[in-house]
């Protein structure tokens, strides 16, 4: 116990205390007011929230659609290449979003796609795809080929097998993947800025602007508190759904 005190003290001062300060600023520190929360819900901001939500939702959906067959292929079909493919999926986790987005930017500029909505979506999918493939792979890996074959031999058609056997069994992976993509995508800052330019404002770019450009701590804090509530809700939903939190 004693040995953990330095680490706990460190987190208390440099992680938990700063969060308390954000909440305090959200409520108008040094006054106490709810006006900053009302401000972020005015119609101009609503457009930004909607942008973020649409981008995160499309990203999540595309990632799921693309990742599912790939995860399935790695988990069930490939034997010889399995480890190599897995390493290739894990490798992007070790490269920062900034670098990966920059690499994509270089290509997108060749196609004259830079600073478009499409570019932002491509960039988001590019960055977040591994976050979807890995949890899906983990849950599909447990689903052995025999289960699928059993379903076939019992007379189920491929589509039936997919809906009745694979989807329910891989649900924990799908839930985890979707949350791992959707929640951070909602606050994503690097991709919309680099690939969307000034034309696309999201929760992430808005936070940046409020803090770095306008120094409006109060409104920025209110926005952060709002985002944190979404994050906590998502984590609680996941714990309830899957029963535990695994990192």
């Amino acid at each position: 116990m004693k040995l953990s005190l330095p680490a706990i003290a460190y987190l208390a001062v440099f992680f938990y205390l700063p969060f308390a300060i954000v909440v305090a600023y959200g409520f108008g520190y040094p006054e106490f007011t709810l006006k900053h929360f009302f401000e972020i819900f005015n119609p101009i901001y609503a457009q930004f929230f909607l942008n973020s939500f649409i981008i995160a939702a499309i990203t999540t959906l595309l990632c799921l659609l693309i990742a599912y067959p790939v995860a399935y292929y790695i988990a069930v079909k490939s034997k010889k290449w399995k480890n190599t493919l897995l390493i290739l999926i894990i490798l992007p986790f070790w490269i920062s979003f900034l670098l990966r987005t920059y690499a994509l930017m270089a290509i997108l500029s060749k196609f004259d796609l830079l600073f478009t909505f499409t570019a932002v979506i491509i960039g988001m999918v590019y960055d977040y795809l591994p976050f979807m493939i890995l949890p899906l792979y983990a849950s599909l890996e447990k689903l052995k080929v025999s289960v699928i074959e059993a379903s076939y031999t019992l007379g189920a058609k491929p589509l039936e097998t997919f809906y009745k056997v694979m989807v329910p069994l891989s649900k924990p992976g799908m839930v985890a993947g979707c949350l791992l993509v959707f929640v951070p995508a909602l606050g994503e800052f690097v991709v919309p800025t680099m690939l969307g330019g000034v034309s696309i404002t999201t929760l992430g770019t808005l936070t940046w602007d409020l803090f770095i450009k306008y120094h409006n701590w109060w409104r920025g804090s209110a926005l952060s508190v709002f985002y944190m509530i979404i994050v906590v809700a998502a984590i609680l939903y996941y714990i309830k759904r899957v029963g535990r939190l695994e990192i």
Binding site: F15, V22, G187, W208, S221, S224, Y227
Partner: peptide, 8 residues
């Protein structure tokens, strides 16, 4: 998410 930790 990183950005909330960063602003804090």
């Amino acid at each position: 998410p990183e950005i909330t930790e960063a602003v804090a």
